[in-house]
Design a protein around this nucleic acid. Structure first.
Lengths: 262, 262
DNA sequence: CGTTATGTTGATAGCCGTCAACATACGTGG
DNA sequence: CCACGTATGTTGACGGCTATCAACATAACG
């Protein structure tokens, strides 16, 4: 009655990872962080040029394809990572297969948890993903004599906690229509925060959803059929248009926000 | 159609607080932390005897009655606190009055948030509550030269994040019966963790629920009627008995855990 | 003892889940 | 480039779970 979670996906990244490592020469490594796209937003922004070289030396790029597993629930976790590009979903599963996505992580979010050795959830690449992976030990050593780094991680965690609690309100108290509108508004804001603040009358905001209908349903506590119908309703209300390839075009962000009860 | 949140409760604590302060003499203050019941579990456990005296000097005891407001959403927050006794509920409210409890805090949990000046939710005493309140500044100063203190706070936040995500699974994917059983199991575990681990055949575990039916409903994303009916079902299944004064007696904890899909 | 808050129980309705059939997109191999 | 099979998405019919409305019971409190 419930879709069984795909827990048997192999760690198919290792091949691609080794290829990358083989191509990488030492000099590139040391400089990699300096030219990193998320250098200043990510937690590593707390580090000086000197420190970041130390981190750079032990960092590994890891390229994942949509659907690749990052960690299984209860896995021993021996590394931390920054999301450089793509979207990662964190989910929990009941013994009978019912599933709930408990977090969506975007760049430059941090993956992995200080003070814990086991992951409390299952993590998977929702889209193609680039990670910047650090060995847990090296990172913790750096954290020990760089309190600012721990502070950044702490603040990141506080943001996640706020997001989780906002989502609890959605899961517990919003209708299916409000849930779907809330999700679409969330993705739209990620894509173009400025546009959503004040959207000129005849602007088109086209976004590609990072999740399938099944994943949206698992994020919102709904079924795929209900998600599909609610998106249909929003289309009928001229709030958005749908295209191929998981793209939607938001015609009326204010209408969307209103439908979401934001 | 939805119960309107009680946001107009006055800060009726101040009277009680001032009375307490008047009774307190300096010598008591300095020693108060040393004899504190939650001294070693709370975040202050990170501090040396010397440091804790400094904290002790600026700490204030605050006694609240059930229903007293601790902070309104969007309030400027100028203090931190430890919960010494009682239960505090954190909740979020939609513009039309729909309400969701996003956190239940027990001793020795910490209230208040580093790196933020405004509360993202509404906090209220669910039962009579004793708080140990610190001015934000003093506490932050102590945090600045005691990294261990920040680490403790960080770990506390990580635990809250885990709890929030567990609750997301409940809100999004569990049935009403499972939700109510999960809540009762949660409270039972708080009250007597050891008993719940392994419960001898003819043991009675009696607990007083810290929440009214309306609050339980707001915690579980249900209505009061549904909560009442589900408790009735558990009684009919001989899993528990109900008494006056919000007490319930768990007859079969394993049955409760099973009904909760734990 | 009266009044109000809280909790219980029943009848009914509606939202959303379930089941089913179909449509479309995607990827692979010819 | 096209054919095929699979994954994903849509739409309809129906039913069940839980919200709603209502009446009543019990507890709490002055």
């Amino acid at each position: 009655m419930w879709r069984v979670p795909v827990l048997d996906v192999c760690y198919s990244v290792s091949a691609g990872l080794e290829r990358y490592a083989a191509m990488t020469v030492i000099s590139e490594r040391i400089d990699r962080c300096r030219i990193c796209a998320i250098r200043h937003q990510a937690v590593c922004g707390a580090l000086s040029d000197h420190e970041i070289q130390a981190l750079s030396a032990v960092a590994r790029q890891r390229v994942l394809k949509a659907g690749d597993v990052i960690q299984n629930a209860e896995d021993e976790v021996s590394s931390f990572a920054n999301i450089v590009s793509g979207v990662v979903k964190l989910s929990k599963v009941l013994s009978d297969g019912r599933q709930q996505i408990v977090g969506l992580q975007f760049p430059p979010d941090f993956l992995g948890r200080a003070y814990r050795t086991r992951s409390p959830f299952y993590a998977e690449a929702a889209t193609d993903v680039e990670l910047c992976v650090f060995p847990k030990r090296s990172f913790e050593a750096l954290m020990a004599d760089q309190p600012e780094l721990e502070s950044r991680l702490f603040q990141n965690t506080l943001d996640e906690l706020d997001a989780a609690r906002d989502w609890m309100l959605l899961l517990g108290r919003k209708s299916a229509a409000e849930k779907v509108a809330s999700f679409l508004a969330l993705i739209a804001r990620r894509k173009a925060p400025a546009l959503c603040e004040h959207m000129p009358a005849d602007t088109l905001l086209t976004i590609t959803l990072p999740l399938t209908r099944a994943e949206i349903a698992d994020y919102l506590g709904l079924t795929i059929e209900t998600v599909s119908r609610q998106i249909g309703n929003l289309r009928a209300a001229d709030i958005l248009e749908t295209g191929a390839n998981r793209t939607i075009t938001v015609l009326d962000y204010d209408g969307l926000a209103e439908a979401a009860q934001l």
